[in-house]
Amino acid sequence: MKKLFSKPESLTDTDHKYCPGCGHGIVHRLVAEVIDELGIREKTIGIAPVGCAVFAYDYWNFDVTEASHGRPPAVATGIKRFLPDRVVFTYQGDGDLAAIGMAETIHAANRGENITVIFINNAIYGMTTGQMAPTSLLGMKTTTSPFGRDPKLAGYPIRVGELLSTLEGTTFLARCAVDSAKHVLDAKKAIKKAFEVQLAGKGYSMVEILSQCPPNWKKSVPESLEYVRKEMMSYFPLGVIKDKTKA
């Protein structure tokens, strides 16, 4: 008998602290599988965010550092510039990447840092229990937008991939989801491509992943999947946003 599907080497055996159905765990595994397949586990350095994925260093079986809230791109820059032959990636939520860390995000992208960014867009602040995020959809009820996100009060959800696509420094940008097996496999392909771009020294790559957060969305798991498909995907369309390697 042969093992067809099992835990990749780049994941530890530690149980995740995530809620049932949370997308973070799926993406952790995808990143680990890609790192295994590319044979880069021993030269990869990951940067965990402040957010629900703060314990990512317990789940990945390679070198991982924390970073303060929003600063992973700056930390990644420091590591990668000093050790350019290592593989460096950040893993960040929407609050981390697109609110408090937006300046670091844009400037790392604009410098064309040869790093990979894995961006978990769950349209909410998961860890702090459900406040509005920069990617919360219009009308979305959160603990700090109790009447629904009103653009007059809180502006509009940010499409990070599209925003970064205007920067000359970005090489590969894609948006994926983990609501179904098909999309999970697509996401894996995009993550692999992003790491390959870095390995080829071609510059900044970012994969945004629409991810379900059932408890803070106050939805069951099936309802959350529906929300990703109907509401999130219509505002945040899936697909490759920019691929300079093809130009």
Partner: peptide, 19 residues
């Protein structure tokens, strides 16, 4: 049929498939 789709969506890597 060992398609592995259950493995793909499991956030907790609770499934392992052999054939």
């Amino acid at each position: 049929n060992a398609c592995g789709l259950c493995f793909q969506v499991c956030p907790d890597v609770a499934i392992e498939i052999w054939k």
